[in-house]
Design a binder for these strands. Structure first.
Lengths: 134, 134
DNA sequence: GTGCCTACTTTCCAATGGAGAGTGACCGTC
DNA sequence: GACGGTCACTCTCCATTGGAAAGTAGGCAC
């Protein structure tokens, strides 16, 4: 988190950044992590702290139970969340971000604020595009 | 890009951030933009500047033509890229980021460096998880 | 007993994504 | 003048993914 490597953008024609092995791995990680539900869950866990299964689903909104379980499991496997099972009846399972998860949430924070500040521009662009083409 | 709103994370129990209408719109935008191919294309266009159709495909790697056209069209509609058709034979179409696209690329830059710096931690977490469960 | 609670799991079906072939428009070669 | 090549798609077929809804487990209240 300290010692951020030099920017990876804004230098066209300057050659690749690193060896292709790392490149491929990074792409694989991006593929896993840059998914709608992962981002949304990351956000609610960052905002609400330790949260129960169904509550996460409510806060995310519009997610099916299948995808909720699946995404949470994936995130647990990648070390982004910790799953705590309280052996009570009825069952109680809580999820919270690990340090790693938190750093990722911070990284995504920029995208979030970008989305907030640029919604109008996107909608304008869409309207212009749709108006032009049809 | 100026006047970044206060951080949206790290304050559990502090109540929601804004009105739910904006919340929903932001989620919709995130859903569109936080997609594997969009991120990857954004990255190559940020790094390589104006680029031709097939070249983008090569640089992204592993993307089908269908998804390439589809994602580029979507990005064009959202005002992230500009599509320039040179009326020559054989056809030549170039794509480049708009200012808006560039700001998004910058926002994603944090995720990129996060992925680079944390690959080892993710792999370790996965190994631990898989070892525990099987 | 019958329900109810929660966190899943399973089943079924519709939508998405990938592989690969086809298309159009023209040019250069034979 | 038929033939192949180039490039940016577009179309078709099929496997995988994702959503909706029902089922499961296991004990507790009635």
């Amino acid at each position: 988190m300290t010692a951020v490597p030099p920017a990876r953008i804004s230098h066209p024609e300057t050659g690749e950044v690193a060896d292709p092995r790392v490149e491929a791995l990074v792409n694989e990680v991006i593929g896993r992590v840059a998914d709608k539900w992962t981002m949304l869950i990351l956000e609610v866990l960052a905002e609400h702290g330790e949260t129960r299964f169904t509550r996460v689903g409510e806060l995310v909104g519009g997610i099916s139970q299948k995808m909720l379980t699946q995404t949470l499991r994936q995130m647990e496997r990648d070390g982004l969340v910790v799953r705590t099972v309280h052996p009570v009846i009825p069952p109680k399972v809580e999820y919270r971000l690990t340090d790693l998860g938190f750093t990722l949430a911070e990284a995504f924070c920029g995208v979030w604020t970008w989305a907030e500040t640029n919604i109008d521009r996107i909608e304008a662009a869409r309207a212009a595009f749709d108006g032009r083409k049809r």
